[in-house]
């Protein structure tokens, strides 16, 4: 499917950028005329993915995070969030609800929430190389 529109941004893994990244993704999605609920879903899923990069990919240093978004003719928005950090040893395990390596400050619900707030979630990771999270969400066409 050919994309209708796209954007790309890059920022360092500072926690202050969590709000920036989710707002940018929501603003880009706004051209599809989403409901507030749909925008809330996009913001939440992006927030989880970016937080994962900051907490897990680059635990002791600052690194680069790249967010790419595309819009397709069927009103689907695709968001890719990529880091070049530590990577995930066992993706299936990381996607399990309540599983976390982040201690009691993290709930272990990040991937579960990304999954329930989007239509598809793909996670590709190589230990030591980084992680790519791809999420797709179809925005309902309004009358």
């Amino acid at each position: 499917m050919k994309e209708k529109n796209s954007f790309k941004m890059e920022f360092p893994s500072k926690s202050v950028n969590e709000a920036f990244a989710r707002s940018a993704a929501a603003c880009f999605t706004a051209q599809l005329d989403p409901t507030l609920d749909e925008l809330g879903d996009i913001k939440t899923a992006v927030s989880e993915a970016v937080t994962n990069c900051i907490v897990h990919a680059y635990p002791d240093s600052l690194g680069k995070i790249c967010l790419k978004a595309r819009i397709f003719p069927d009103n689907t928005v695709e968001i890719k969030i990529k880091d070049w950090g530590r990577g995930i040893d066992d993706v299936a395990k990381a996607r399990e609800p309540m599983y976390t390596t982040g201690g009691d400050e993290r709930s272990g619900m990040g991937f579960t929430i990304m999954e329930s707030f989007t239509d598809t979630l793909k996670v590709v990771s190589k230990p030591g190389k980084g992680t790519l999270v791809t999420m797709r969400r179809k925005i309902a066409v309004k009358e």
């Binding site: 709000a19 989710r22 809330g40 913001k43 939440t44 927030s47 989880e48 937080t51 009691d104 400050e105 993290r106 709930s107 619900m109 990040g110 929430i113």
Partner: peptide
Amino acid sequence: TFMDSSGIAVVLK
């Protein structure tokens, strides 16, 4: 105005 899974940890703690 917004909460993600970080809020779950705050509630649980």
